[in-house]
């Protein structure tokens, strides 16, 4: 290694411990001295670069990080709260507003009866078969005969579906009959039900259904039997 190269390399990197440099350092006292000088200079430079560091810098760094962390956690917490609240809202709204296809048909029919108590006691519109059949036509049904009086026959809202609500007379007692189209939407309901006061049956005829509710099982069964014979069903 020539002198120029030696000096260039040592000035650029005084602590270079490359073999070639080590070797070159041994080639004479001048080179040894130059090496020493350059390292001494480098130590001075290193010392000069070592400016004082503010005493509390480390603490400041930790403090700032803690603060930022805390702030971010708060923001994250707020965000989680917001998410939780909106999820809750959506779930609640869904349950409240979504039409429930599996709602219990029997319960709904009973509730409907309780909601209009007059139909089972005093109400009397004295309808005739022709009027009933006119209304039944839109449900694909036609009734040939009727045993007793017809106290009531009107369209009503049955869980979002237009249905026919009738109150018939059977052996001097009142029986409520619902004609419900698209009954297949209500799948979980048993064919027979009772709640202690009323008894009921559900007869399915393809898409349509007939719900009969009365105060005794016999009454319901007999009405059901006669209606099965009296009503002819068509697809709607």
């Amino acid at each position: 290694m020539d002198d120029l190269e030696f000096r260039r390399r040592l000035i650029a990197e005084p602590y270079d411990d490359d073999e070639a440099i080590k070797q070159a350092l041994l080639e004479g006292d001048n080179r040894q001295q130059f090496g020493k000088d350059m390292r001494a200079l480098d130590d001075k430079i290193a010392a000069a670069l070592n400016v004082d560091v503010p005493d509390d810098l480390a603490n400041q760094l930790l403090l700032k990080q803690r603060f930022t962390e805390h702030k971010e956690q708060n923001e994250r917490r707020k965000w989680i709260f917001a998410m939780a609240a909106s999820v809750t809202l959506v779930v609640t709204a869904t349950f409240a507003l979504w039409p429930q296809p599996h709602a219990n048909l029997a319960d709904y029919a009973l509730a409907h009866v309780y909601h209009e108590p007059a139909t089972m006691t005093t109400l009397d519109e004295n309808a005739n078969l022709t009027q009933v059949n006119a209304k039944l036509a839109s449900y694909g049904a036609e009734m040939s005969t009727v045993d007793g009086r017809i106290f009531y026959a009107n369209h009503c809202d049955f869980k979002g579906k237009r249905s026919l609500h009738m109150v018939l007379e059977h052996q001097g007692q009142r029986v409520t009959v619902f004609v419900v189209p698209h009954i297949e939407a209500f799948k979980d309901t048993p064919a027979q039900f009772e709640d202690g006061r009323y008894h009921g049956v559900i007869n399915r005829h393809g898409e349509q259904g007939l719900i009969i509710i009365g105060e005794s099982p016999t009454l319901v069964e007999e009405t059901s039997g006669s209606l099965e014979q009296a009503i002819k069903w068509q697809r709607i």
Partner: peptide, 27 residues
């Protein structure tokens, strides 16, 4: 933190800016 502060100091020649830089760096 000391070396980073010194490096920052020699980059910008200002103690206050160096401290800010170190804060940002560690954050």
């Amino acid at each position: 933190h000391k070396d980073i502060y010194r490096y920052a100091y020699w980059l910008c020649s200002d103690q206050a800016i160096a401290q800010d830089l170190v804060q940002e760096t560690f954050l």
